[in-house]
């Protein structure tokens, strides 16, 4: 681990100074994140009984989680909701990021980004509840349309279903998708686009062959930063789904706190993280040719 010259004592090297400076933050993260996460992984291979969580090493929790009908249904639903949310959020976000990067004058860009991020910073619980109010059976959309005389019966297609869940989450994660795509679009050399058009390609072809491939790293970042946290969302299934559409987070809560089976709850948590990690890695591998600089 010797960094720098052999003659300088280790405590004077740059490497030591850097490590010393970052050690409080690192220590905090290890103690309050790495250790608890490791504990959950260990618990998931143990048994929760009257004496608390005890050994010996067992796969029982995982067998239960991976073969149980209830668990499979909820895992599949969580995965589907997260994928739909990611798809909706990124598809809706891309044109906005493109618009702000290519069509908004430079001095107004910061204002647009500020406008886009503000809703994200307002109370999450209140926002989710408001979507329930907007989409509900006697909600804002239905009552509004009825008082305008456009519909006679409340629309049922919009309340308390997967669609409502997806819409609420797509709203909650919008800035997370816009910002990484925007950052990548800003870096694209504008002369490449001019070159494409000078060579006789239409705007659409230029977009598909130059802009879109170059912006893939931003899209990948957006997908990951929306997909990974969404699968652990707790509030939206509870408020919007009315408890009828539980997701992984709700199931973890039930096992950990209500059933007091921390071993099984840990196995669900670890399984969820594994699924998320595998899907994320697969997605990155699938797009890796775009990540190594250059579009081809």
């Amino acid at each position: 681990m010797s960094v720098g010259h052999a003659s300088t004592p280790f405590t004077q090297t740059e490497g030591f100074k850097g490590l010393r400076l970052i050690s409080p933050t690192l220590f905090y993260c290890v103690l309050l994140m790495a250790v608890p996460l490791a504990t959950v992984v260990i618990y998931s291979f143990m048994t929760d009984g009257d004496q608390g969580v005890t050994g010996p090493f067992t796969f029982d929790n995982y067998i239960k989680v991976w073969t149980g009908k209830v668990y499979q249904t909820i895992m599949a639903r969580s995965l589907m909701v997260s994928m739909l949310v990611t798809l909706a959020t990124v598809l809706l976000a891309y044109p906005i990021a493109y618009y702000v990067s290519f069509h908004v004058p430079a001095h107004r860009k910061a204002l647009w980004l500020f406008l886009i991020t503000i809703p994200f910073w307002t109370s999450y619980v209140v926002r989710v509840f408001l979507w329930k109010v907007i989409l509900g059976y006697n909600g804002v959309i239905n009552s509004g349309l009825m008082s305008l005389g456009i519909i006679d019966e409340p629309l049922q297609a919009i309340n308390y279903n997967i669609g409502a869940l997806v819409m609420t989450l797509a709203h909650a994660y919008a800035p997370f998708a816009i910002l990484p795509i925007f950052v990548v679009l800003e870096k694209i050399d504008r002369s490449l686009l001019e070159a494409g058009q000078d060579l006789g390609e239409s705007k659409i072809v230029t977009f598909l062959r130059v802009t879109l491939p170059l912006s893939v790293p931003g899209i990948i970042a957006a997908v990951l930063i929306v997909f990974i946290p969404t699968i652990g969302d707790y509030v939206t299934p509870d408020l919007i789904g009315g408890g009828k559409l539980p997701m992984i987070a709700n199931m973890i809560e039930v096992q950990m706190l209500k059933q007091n089976n921390r071993a099984l709850g840990s196995a669900i948590a670890v399984s969820a993280m594994l699924i998320v990690a595998l899907v994320s890695i697969a997605f990155v591998m699938w797009n890796r040719r775009y990540l190594k600089g250059g579009a081809r």
């Binding site: 993260c29 290890v30 608890p36 652990g232 707790y234 969820a272």
Partner: peptide
């Protein structure tokens, strides 16, 4: 990477692992 990890970890997982400990 470790310091920035909470940015992408689902909060539910962080909350539950902290509670357990």
């Amino acid at each position: 990477g470790l310091v920035m990890l909470p940015l992408v970890l689902p909060e539910m997982i962080l909350a539950m692992s902290l509670i357990v400990v």
